[in-house]
């Protein structure tokens, strides 16, 4: 069999597997960028010694616990506190002044994973004196990861790099004030959680659930194909109040989407956008 035929066959098997996941469990990975999904599926295939992708499909239909393993494989839960410190600096400088105008703030952290960046936001809002008037909705499609986020317990190994990030992100206090250390892990301070609501939401299948002033969705859209990216941008545009802010990951952009004109640049470098105030663009 030629390489091209082999690759083609594997792509067919992969699409059938994603279709099976959708039909059986309702999670829709069919519009994800395929290279990353395939790597993860093949990794599981090798680890669990399946002869091919199709063999995984049968197991997946019969065994819900195997599906849960795959779901964890497929959702990329690599994150850190104050990831990309320059983004948080820009947030302090360019966005916080705009948010001060609102008496009450609704913030949506979409695809929050294990919560490191949500707690980072909570810390930043506290230091800027805005936390008490904020409601943060932190959502992810994966319940297991959401529980981790809700618990706010992180490995102590990473604290050193988090502390450095915090300082580079313009942190004003001592970072250790925000957690309690126990042996090999830290527990984030309870007061940070008071205004955070963790809940289940899937960007591929679910809709708008409230009017937001600020949406943060970083390093999530890189896993989606163009069509799904457009769906999510429309969802965010509908969800944002006029003049509301949308923050993407440093390699993500709304500029190639078909609703690009709805958004003005706040920071081109840090991918911070503002939903236009002029109604004729919308």
């Amino acid at each position: 069999m030629s390489t091209s035929e082999e690759v083609e066959n594997q792509q067919i098997e992969l699409q059938l597997l994603l279709q099976a996941i959708y039909l059986k469990y309702g999670y829709d990975f069919r519009s994800y960028a395929k290279a990353s999904v395939k790597r993860r599926i093949l990794h599981r295939m090798t680890t669990d010694q399946f002869p091919n992708i199709s063999a995984m499909q049968h197991r997946l239909l019969e065994d819900v616990s195997f599906f849960e393993t795959l779901l964890l494989d497929l959702s990329i839960n690599v994150t850190e506190m104050f990831r990309d410190p320059t983004f948080y600096l820009a947030l302090r400088k360019e966005v916080i002044p705009l948010l001060r105008n609102y008496p009450f703030l609704k913030i949506w952290h979409a695809g929050c994973s294990s919560g490191e960046e949500v707690y980072s936001m909570a810390i930043l809002l506290k230091e800027e004196g805005l936390y008490d008037r904020a409601q943060i909705y932190a959502t992810d499609m994966n319940q297991v990861i959401l529980k981790k986020a809700r618990d706010g317990i992180f490995s102590i190994n990473r604290l050193k790099s988090y502390t450095m990030n915090y300082q580079r992100a313009g942190g004003q206090e001592s970072f250790s004030d925000y957690y309690n250390a126990h042996y090999d892990h830290v527990v984030m301070d309870k007061s940070l959680k008071e205004n955070i609501l963790f809940s289940d939401h899937n960007l591929a299948t679910d809709g708008v659930f409230g009017e937001m002033h600020l949406i943060i969705c970083r390093n999530v859209l890189i896993y989606f194909n163009r069509e799904l990216q457009d769906r999510v941008f429309r969802l965010f545009a509908e969800s944002l109040t006029l003049g509301g802010i949308m923050c993407l990951g440093s390699k993500e952009s709304v500029r190639l989407s078909n609703i690009s004109t709805i958004f003005d640049d706040i920071s081109k470098e840090e991918k911070i956008y503002r939903k236009s105030l002029s109604l004729d663009k919308i």
Binding site: Q11, A33, K34, A35, R39, I76, I222
Partner: peptide, 11 residues
């Protein structure tokens, strides 16, 4: 990707 475009990941 199979269509000869790039994708990125923070995996």
């Amino acid at each position: 990707e199979t269509d000869r475009s790039f994708s990125l990941s923070v995996a």
